[in-house]
Each structure stands twice: as C-alpha cells, then as structure tokens.
Write a protein that binds this DNA or RNA. Structure first.
Length: 216
DNA sequence: GACCAGGCACATC
DNA sequence: GATGTGCATGGT
C-alpha cells in the first residue's frame, strides 16, 4: 500500500525521468574519484570541479596513496579551479589522513563497514558534513542513503512536502520513510533532481512551463 | 558587474 | 538552538 507521499515522490521522479532519462551517476571512474569530487563540489559548480580533477588526473595523482603524499601547497594549486582551494586542500588532507589511519588506504576494507558506522566515521572528519558523507555512501559505496542538497530542499518545499527551512534529517526522512530502500532509485532520484535544477527553469518559478515538475 | 554554484566549520548571540 | 560569516574560482 503506497502512502500519499510515496505516490507524490514517485510522480516527481517519473516526470523527471521521462524528461531527462537515466543520468548515469556519479560521473567518475573510481570510488576514490567520487570521494574527491564530493569534497571539491561543496558549494561549487561541477564544471569547475572537473577542471580540478583533470589537473589531478593529468599529474598522475588520482590514487589514494599518491595524492596523500602530495605537499599541501601543490595540492592547493592542483585544485585551484574548484574554488575555496585553501580550505578544500585541508579537507582533502583530513580525509586522506582518515583513510590512512582507519583503513591503511584500503577502500576495500572501508567497503566492508556497516553503513551507519561508516557514516558516523565520515561525519567525524572535519570538512565532511551530511551531504558530502551521504554522497560518498551512495555513490562510492552503493549504500541506500538519500542525498539531500539545496536543490532537493527547494523542490520538496515547492511541492509543499516540507517547510521552507526544513533541516537535513527532516528532508531526508521524507524520502527514506516513504520510499523503499533502493540504491538504484536513490542514485537516480538525486541525480535527476540536480539535472532538473540545472535546466533553464531551475525549479524555481512556480509558473515555469518547461519544468517537468510543473503541475505535479 | 552582479549573481550563482551538487557545503562546511566556526563565532556570536 | 539559530543566525551570520568566511572561504574563491569561473560561467552566465
């Protein structure tokens, strides 16, 4: 028996899927690249993040052990195009220090850890908040964790499912308490929200005619 | 030239 | 607990 909210969420999902199709997220070739991107994209357009990741790739450093050895100042230069490079370089260092300390740089060991424990570990790292942690859990480790970002809050607010300043956990609960735990669905749903938001209407104007969510 | 982008930590009240 | 602020590049 589907709840009213579940039906609404699925209607939103289907509209976006029909308009844009599968998004094939996360745009990365490895779990480590997902993690780098998740930190670099904090309050930053993906376009700029791609430049930073390309710099790291071109330098042959897209590898946990290699990148961990790069001096801070060189790391700053490599990620400069993604903005906030001073603070983000420190965050990457914090994160890689965590990987070394907890897992000896082994993402396979990390992969064996239970989701709630892993989430708490990630949140304990300075520079990794809920959205970044959940992005890593969903897109690097295929866990059924719903990622909430500014777009998601905006869309749920626009559709009257949460209040204007609803907290992260509250917004996340709307999805996880009403949808079945399905990693593939969560993956595609969040990706489609970002895609929809990037289109012209930005999912903002209530009277937008081109938005696939208009009238849902 | 203003505004925005796939947040987060920290200071202050 | 809530609100405000710094962090910075590059595209529109």
């Amino acid at each position: 028996m589907k709840s009213v909210t579940e039906k609404r969420l699925l209607r939103i999902y289907n509209r976006m899927y029909d308009a844009y199709g599968p998004q094939d997220w996360w745009p990365a070739d490895s779990a480590f690249e997902v993690m780098l991107g998740a930190i670099l994209t904090q309050n930053t357009s993906w376009h700029n993040v791609e430049k930073a990741i390309k710099n790291i790739k071109d330098a042959g450093l897209l590898n946990v052990r290699k990148l961990a050895c790069v001096p801070l100042n060189r790391l700053k230069k490599l990620i400069k195009p993604s903005g906030f490079y001073n603070i983000k370089a420190l965050r990457l260092k914090n994160f890689m220090g965590f990987l070394k300390k907890m897992y000896g740089y082994s993402l396979n060991k990390m992969r064996k850890v239970e989701t709630d424990i892993l989430r708490n570990e990630l949140l304990s790292i300075s520079g990794i908040g809920k959205e970044t942690a959940d992005s890593i859990l969903l897109y690097a480790f295929e866990r059924s964790v719903f990622v909430i970002d500014a777009y998601t809050k905006r869309i749920l607010y626009r559709h009257g499912l949460v209040g204007k300043d609803a907290e992260y956990d509250r917004v996340q609960g709307i999805f996880t308490e009403n949808l079945k735990r399905d990693t593939g669905l969560y993956n595609e749903f969040h990706a489609l929200i970002v895609r929809t938001a990037k289109e012209k209407c930005k999912s903002r104007a209530p009277d937008c005619k081109t938005c696939p969510l208009n009238g849902v």
